[in-house]
Design a protein around this nucleic acid. Structure first.
Length: 733
DNA sequence: CTCTTCTGGGTTTTT
DNA sequence: CCCAGAAGAG
């Protein structure tokens, strides 16, 4: 491939980034400015023009989705297999390192990755054992504490001794947690990074090997790196690094989990001779959308400063809809999507975004009713469902019977008469002897000191696992999964659950078998290949499943996409709805206190707005059912921060005169607003004429029905409030 | 010990 | 509202 084809279709700035000389570079890439394009072409440039070996490249992303996207686009552009490329998430790459160098990292070969749920269970267990009051010290908070410490690169022993009870308690939990993880070969998400970072620091020759190997490192979404990720990169890059960090400070939305936007500033200092390139030309959105985005983000203090521009068309104004309630909001969205489809659009071009997953339910129901095909991303993940985790735990036990999380999870699922008493005996034995639950159970039976009950019930479980292990020895992964689900009794057990739940769970278990069937083709990093060591496909599957949330949902036909604003980052859609634009919800209540977090909410809104290519809708509800009761929220401040000339109010705001929720028509639960644009013929910003006052512009409105009034700013007589029922107002245009 | 019912508490985003 | 844990009944 020659130079021209690598640079084909890139603008000046993009080329500058792609062809930047050896050394470090920081690419500040605004939304829709072709960031991924630059990364992919940079890889092509390095390999084909600079002659860098594909083995000498590392590309790091944050999500599996982004990694997969980059990999496939590299494959496409270079017409090569991306198998050998080290393209992956921070966690994925760190995991790969630990698997290859488990000995140096001080881990057992078959160490297990803990997901959030496993971690919480473990912490609860510890707190109970330590006699820590869970009412006073919520386990979730303890988990959060541990994770934040690890994200900062801190071990429990590095937490200063103090007389602060909070700190004392959490330090204690952290210490015990660390001990149990080490003992059981358990590694949580944050640990992957922390541990591999330490691996390098403690093994200089190993570090040197990787520093020499990875001549070029590319990092996507750099604004989302946290302390340990930054340190990880810094160490790997060494002194002669060629690091290209691509990011956008305005799209930093993971501060809550330790991401440090300052890393962008630090980069220029820590990495020698950093070249800074800005990409501000947007190829995605209309000028209207960009103006709105620029105006909104301009309200933030803490930014590098950047202004998106386009030479594309102005586009349609942003539509703002004030719904009566959440049902009405969903109904409205469904209606507009239907209209979009009716005029030649596809449901696959539409995204409905929201701040929190809880909002998806009502929207989902509306789409169902409107018969619009949809897909929901996020929320309850497939591999995190209880029945799936149960099945995976059995599979884990077949691979590694000493996995305590797995043992504890399924010892009594399906119920086999092993209750707290029995289990406590096993736990005790395990604790005093510092052995796995499995070993403890075996010992108890052997000593026959335990009651007959323990011997019989527990023994039955151990024999079951042993038996299954023998039987499955030479099975394919999917055969093994199928066998496990049947023989463990899970299928029968879950199938018996009441109502639709049982059915759904059975289906999920069946889907797990299918997932297993397809898995072997999806291996991104067959470990044996590089290490020469034996790894079973079962082992790789169990790891992958934890690391990859598995929301790479079946492609299927075109479908509307529903997701949180966070998971929408990096995506684009012709038609976008930002729903739930209400104070308390978005910006979220939890962020209201600190200014820093409010700025992050604003960045989140910026991310949402810039997803839209052609048309953007903002919707909010005057009342919303949350946590079982009705709440009344004011429209989000973010709407007010947008220039009014870019907005089109679809319905005059009102807070009066609506029927009570009880009187909702039984037909569908959605209510048409009493006044809407069609009925009243007015919208915000519209020019009107009044017989007496002359011409003016609608600036505010309130009330409904007979009491509806609007404020009009007249050019001659100033602003006046006029009752719609009385005043004769004539719309112009 | 298991199953059911009840109560109370928690609800942001994800690897 | 929805889930987890507690409490109560078989």
């Amino acid at each position: 491939m020659d130079v021209t084809s690598v640079l084909d279709g890139l603008n000046e700035r993009q080329r500058e980034a792609v062809t930047s000389p050896q050394g470090n570079s920081l690419v500040i890439a605004g939304a829709g400015s072709g960031k991924t394009r630059v990364l992919v072409h940079r890889v092509a440039w390095l390999i084909q023009i600079e002659g860098v070996s594909p083995n000498g490249l590392m590309a790091v992303t944050f999500t599996n989705k982004a990694a997969a996207e980059m990999r496939s686009r590299i494959e496409e552009l270079l017409n090569m297999s991306g198998q050998t490329l080290w393209v992956g998430t921070f966690h994925g790459l760190a995991h790969r390192l630990l698997r290859m160098h488990w000995q140096e990292a001080g881990l057992p070969q078959n160490f297990q990755i803990l997901d959030a749920d496993d971690q919480l269970r473990l912490v609860k267990r510890i707190m109970r054992d330590q006699g820590i009051d869970e009412q006073k010290w919520p386990a979730r908070q303890a988990v959060w504490f541990i994770n934040s410490q690890k994200d900062e690169g801190k071990r429990s022993k590095e937490i200063p001794v103090s007389d602060d009870l909070f700190q004392i308690t959490h330090k204690k939990i952290y210490e015990n947690y660390e001990r149990l993880c080490n003992q059981g070969g358990l590694v949580d998400f944050a640990e992957l990074l922390l541990r591999s970072h330490e691996l390098w620091l403690e093994n200089p020759s190993l570090l040197r090997h990787y520093q020499e190997r990875f001549q070029s490192i590319l990092v996507d979404e750099f604004q989302d790196t946290n302390t340990i990720q930054y340190a990880w990169l810094r160490v790997l890059a060494g002194d002669h690094s060629n690091v290209m960090a691509v990011g956008d400070d305005d799209q930093s939305i993971y501060g809550w989990r330790g991401a440090k936007m300052e890393n962008i500033h630090r980069f220029k200092e820590d990495f020698q001779k950093t070249m800074v390139i800005r990409l501000e030309q947007n190829y995605r959105s209309t000028a209207t959308v960009l103006k709105a985005a620029n105006a909104l983000i301009g309200n933030n203090q803490d930014r590098l400063g950047k202004e998106l521009w386009t030479d594309g068309p102005e586009g349609e104004p942003i539509q703002v809809y004030s719904a009566y309630n959440d049902l009405d909001e969903a109904r409205f969205i469904a209606e507009r999507v239907q209209a979009w489809i009716a005029t030649g659009g596809s449901s696959g071009e539409v995204a409905v975004l929201y701040r929190s997953n809880a909002q998806s339910r009502v929207l989902e129901e509306a789409m169902l009713r409107a018969q619009i095909p949809y897909r929901i991303y996020g929320g309850q993940r497939f591999f995190e469902r209880a029945e799936i985790k149960n099945a995976l735990s059995y599979m884990r036990l077949l691979h590694d019977r000493h996995s305590d999380p797995a043992f504890e999870r399924v010892i009594n699922i399906p119920t086999r008469g092993i209750g707290d008493k029995t289990l406590e005996a096993v736990r005790n034995q395990a604790r005093t002897q510092s052995v796995s639950l499995w070993k403890a159970a075996e010992d108890l039976i052997e000593m026959s000191s335990a009651g007959a009950r323990v011997t019989e019930k527990i023994g039955g479980f151990l024999r079951l696992i042993d038996m299954m292990r023998h039987e499955t020895h030479d099975m394919d992964l999917h055969e093994l999964a199928d066998y496990t689900i049947q023989k463990s009794g899970l299928m029968e057990f879950h199938g018996r659950e009441r109502g639709e739940r049982g059915l759904a769970r059975k289906e999920n278990l069946e889907e797990l078998v299918s997932a297993c069937r397809e898995f072997s083709g999806e291996l991104v990093f067959p470990l044996g290949q590089e290490t020469g060591e034996e790894t079973t496909i079962l082992e790789e599957f169990l790891d992958q499943v934890v690391l990859d949330s598995g929301d790479r949902q079946a492609e299927g036909g075109p479908a509307l996409q529903m997701m949180t604003l966070h998971s929408a980052k990096g995506l684009e859609f012709p038609l976008v709805f930002l729903s739930g634009m209400e104070e308390g919800l978005f910006p979220h209540q939890m962020s209201a206190q600190e200014p820093g977090r409010m700025e992050e909410e604003r960045r989140l809104c910026y991310v949402g707005i810039t997803r839209a290519m052609q048309q953007l809708y903002l919707t909010y509800a005057e009342s919303r059912r949350m946590h079982g009761s009705d709440t009344y929220n004011r429209p989000s401040r973010f709407i007010a921060e947008l220039p009014t000339e870019l907005l089109q109010q679809i319905r005059i705001k009102s807070s009066l005169g609506y029927p009570k929720k009880k009187s909702v028509s039984p037909s569908g639960g959605s209510i048409r607003p009493l006044i809407d644009e069609a009925a009243i013929g007015l919208r915000m910003g519209q020019r009107v004429r009044h017989a007496k006052f002359g011409e003016g512009v609608v600036t505010q409105a309130e009330g409904s029905g007979e009491r509806a009034r609007v404020q009009i700013r007249f050019s001659n007589v100033g602003s006046k409030w006029l009752m719609l029922g009385i005043a004769k107002i004539e719309p112009l245009e």
